[in-house]
Design a protein around this nucleic acid. Structure first.
Ligand code: MN
Ligand code: MN
Ligand code: ZN
Ligand code: ZN
Lengths: 148, 148
DNA sequence: TATGGTAATGATAATCATTATCATTAACAG
DNA sequence: CTGTTAATGATAATGATTATCATTACCATA
C-alpha cells in the first residue's frame, strides 16, 4: 500500500476526500492485470472489507475514471469492466476479446504503426467532418487458444 | 419493399418463416443510415404496425444479426444499436462517436492502409497468442462539429 | 486532539435494457 | 384448406446501474 500516498496526493487535487473504499478499489485494480467488473470488485473487496456497499463501488469507479486513475471498457456483453491506468505513455494498448469465453488479452504491438495511421486518420477526420478526435479504441474479436 | 423478395429468399435458407415483423424491421433499417436502438425501432414501427411486441423486436434483431443482415454495436453508453449490413465489400466502415451528444458518424477512409495494418497485426496475434482473429472494430471518440 | 461542517457511505428503492415464459396466432408444407 | 409448429406478444423476471436519503467519518480549523 505504498502507492497510497501518491494516489492520495494526486487525488486530493480534485477536491475529494481520501477514503478506505477509494483506496481499496485502487489498490485491488493496481495489483491485477485483469479487467474487472463492478460485481467482481465488490465480491473481492467484501472479503477484506465486509459491509462495503455496491453503490460505493459504482460511484467510486466512475470517479476514478473521471480523474484518470482507471479505464472503463465495454466488451459488448455483460457489465462494464475497469482496469488500472498506468501513468506511463508506454502503456497504451488494445484488446483481444474471445467471443466464446470472454477472455480479454492486452495487446500493445504495432503501436508505432498504429499511431501513425491514427494520426493520419485524425487529420482527415478533422478536415472532413470538423470532428475533434480525443481518443480511439481498437478491438480484435476472435477465439483464444483455449477456444478453438 | 422490392428488396423484400431478396431478403425473403436469403432468409428462408436459414429455415425460418418470413413474417411481417421481420420484414418491417429489415425495411426500416435498410432505409436509414442511422444506428437505431431496439426502443427506437419499436417506437418507429409501432406507428405503422400497432401491437408489435418489444420481445419480437429483440428476438428478430438478434436473429438478423446471426444471419448477417445486421450489425450490432455498442457505443458504451445506453442500449445496443443496430445498422443494416450492406452486402458489398465496400461497406466496411468504422465510427466516430461524439462523447457529448452521442452522434455516430460512419467513417470509411484509410480502409486500405487499415486493412494492411490489421492483417499484419492479426498474423502477429496468431503467432504470439494463438488467438484466431475473426473481426475487428475501431472507434474514434471526440466532439462532433456541433459540440465544440 | 477535539470538533463541526459536509462529503462520502451504505441500505434500499427505482430505473433501464434485455431475456425468459407461455398461451395464442399465423406461416406455409402438404 | 388444413394441421403442424415456429413466431408472436403480453407479462414476469433478471441483471446492471443509478437515485434517494439517513447515517457516518474525513479533515480543516481552532
Ligand atoms: Mn487492458
Ligand atoms: Mn455505421
Ligand atoms: Zn476463449
Ligand atoms: Zn456531438
Amino acid at each position: 500500500m505504498v502507492e497510497a500516498y501518491k494516489w492520495r496526493h494526486r487525488f486530493r487535487k480534485h477536491v475529494s476526500r481520501w477514503t478506505l473504499p477509494r483506496e481499496s478499489i485502487l489498490d485491488l485494480l493496481s495489483r491485477t492485470s485483469k479487467h474487472l467488473s463492478a460485481k467482481e470488485i465488490y465480491d473481492d473487496l467484501s472479503k477484506a472489507y465486509p459491509g462495503i456497499g455496491q453503490s460505493t463501488i459504482y460511484r467510486t469507479l466512475s470517479l476514478l475514471v473521471q480523474t484518470g486513475f482507471l479505464n472503463k471498457m465495454d466488451i459488448g456483453d455483460g457489465p462494464k469492466r475497469y482496469e488500472y491506468r498506468s501513468s506511463s505513455k508506454m502503456e497504451h494498448h488494445h484488446h483481444l476479446i474471445c467471443t466464446k469465453c470472454g477472455k480479454i488479452i492486452d495487446y500493445s504491438d504495432f503501436i508505432d504503426e498504429e499511431e501513425k495511421l491514427v494520426k493520419e486518420a485524425e487529420k482527415n477526420i478533422t478536415g472532413k467532418y470538423n470532428f475533434k478526435v480525443q481518443d480511439h479504441n481498437i478491438e480484435f474479436y476472435g477465439l483464444c487458444k483455449d477456444c478453438h
